[in-house]
Design a protein around this nucleic acid. Structure first.
Length: 419
RNA sequence: CGGGGCGUAGCGUAACGGCUAACGCACUUGGUUUGGGACCAAGGGACUCCGGGUUCGAAUCCCGGCGCCCCGACCA
């Protein structure tokens, strides 16, 4: 992508209204645009990051047997009445000119349960797992913290269906592992704790995935022995101790909930009377689990975690581009060589953002820092004096020169992947 | 939903009862620049959030809306 043609712009100044770090950096970098409180447009750079997060999640959920579907955001009133959730205050509703009402989906049990019931009758078809990556609507009383708490946000929601508890438990643990794989791939695993939360009426605990950040809005209590945590709602019930080992020395930390998994058991299958026929031809109730993960929140969390005074520092796996090719100056040969490198990187199928703009070196470097692509190739008259380009890496350890490539027009995929 | 703060060009701000609403960034044109947010010159761009009031006169004061941010309650 030629930066001269990139839709969206970096800005130096930002309203003092915008106080959260993720909103500031993402807006300044031209990743997102705020439409209203809690509602954002994802510009090309932001959309690329979101898509990369989406790809990672899709891969890991597919790997545990998830089948992707896409359910409607516009939902039937009667199904919400069936579960008794039509009246919850989080639900947004729309009304037509003729006064017909619909709910806007903030979760999808009311859609997926009747849907599954329609297709599945026999024990032979269990277990099965369906998920979607879709926009959710929630009437948050207070949207805040940039894309950490929106009224409209992108979420992956997975639903599992089982004929017995043992099978549900088995999958529940698999989902847990898959979540940690996702956190690992976006480089926040070491800051993310499996956190015990209240399980409601049907199971003792549910689990949240809480990622430590000062921007977080939750308080969790970490057990360093077990490497797990407990959330605020159940800390008192547990008498301030770890539910696994009983350790009383829990550390209080701020965190953000980046995922949650929940054994729904029969909460929704009973409401919709979703039963299956077992081996003996006898009816029994289906068990369910649900597994959520907010993509836009994950993106915001990563920005909160990985930045410095100059801008965002994206993990390699979700950076909007793999390489930022920065061409400095108007020197004819430098421009010609930049074009050659740009084309050769494209031939190597490397995603490259090419700063071909007619801007000063300072502007280009500042923008590059802000956008936060971890690998930067700089080419200028100066580097060409030694027939080379600079390859610089900017990551959480700082900013350093990692190489000088002598043969300018022949940077290969390997050179990029190895740095 | 309670408390606090704030709404002036695309963005950041100034003017705080009195001439044509000012400045910086961004934008357009021409020129000089190009290794860390350059410079000169010339431009375009505003129903001062909306509605009502007070006043000879309102961006400025008052009332009512709406919107945005922060704190709290609630929540992925």
């Amino acid at each position: 992508m030629r930066q001269s043609q990139l839709f969206g712009k970096t800005t130096y100044e930002i309203s003092k209204d915008e106080q959260s770090v993720n909103a500031q950096l993402l807006i300044r970098g031209g990743f997102i645009h705020k439409e209203m409180a809690g509602v954002y447009t994802y510009l090309p750079l932001g959309k690329r990051v979101l898509s990369k997060i989406e790809d990672i999640i899709r891969e890991e959920i597919d790997a545990i047997g998830g089948q992707e579907i896409l359910m409607p955001a516009l939902q039937k009133k009667e199904d919400w009445k069936t579960t008794g959730r039509w009246g919850v205050d989080i639900m947004m509703k729309v009304k037509t000119f003729f006064n017909k009402e619909y709910g806007l989906g903030w979760t999808h049990e009311e859609v997926v349960t009747p849907l599954a019931k329609k297709y599945i009758k026999s024990y032979k078809d269990f277990p099965f797992f369906v998920y979607q990556i879709q926009t959710k609507f929630r009437s948050e009383k207070r949207a805040k913290s940039g894309i950490l708490r929106g009224r409209e946000f992108l979420m992956k929601d997975l639903y599992s269906f089982h004929i017995n508890e043992e099978d549900l438990n088995k999958f529940y643990n698999k989902a847990k592992d898959a979540y940690f794989k996702i956190f690992d791939r976006v480089e926040i695993k070491d800051k993310t704790y499996l956190t015990f939360a209240s399980g409601g009426a049907f199971s003792k605990y549910s689990h949240e995935f809480q990622t430590l950040t000062s921007a977080g809005e939750d308080i969790i209590y970490i057990c360093n022995k077990c490497n797990i945590a407990v959330n605020r709602e159940i800390i008192e019930d547990l008498k301030q101790s770890c539910p696994v080992c009983g350790n009383k020395n829990l550390k209080e930390k701020k965190a953000i909930e980046t995922g949650n998994i929940f054994k729904l058991k029969t909460r929704f299958t009973e409401a919709f009377n979703f039963k299956f026929l077992d081996k003996n031809g006898k009816e029994d109730i289906v068990l369910m689990g649900c597994y959520g993960m907010g993509l836009s929140r994950l993106m915001g969390t990563i920005v909160e975690l990985f930045n410095d005074e100059n801008g965002i520092i994206w993990p390699k796996s979700i950076a909007p581009y793999q390489v930022h090719l920065v061409s400095i100056g108007k020197d004819e040969r430098a421009i010609k060589e930049s074009e050659k490198i740009y084309k050769s990187l494209q031939m190597e199928k490397i995603d490259v953002l090419y700063d071909n703009r007619n801007e000063s070196a300072g502007v280009k470097f500042k923008d590059s820092d802000l956008i936060g692509i971890p690998l930067r190739i700089v080419i200028s008259k100066k580097t060409l004096e030694s027939n080379s380009v600079e390859i610089k890496k900017r990551d959480r350890d700082g900013f350093k020169l990692v190489g000088i490539n002598k043969i300018v027009a022949s940077i290969k995929r390997g050179d990029i992947n190895n740095t």
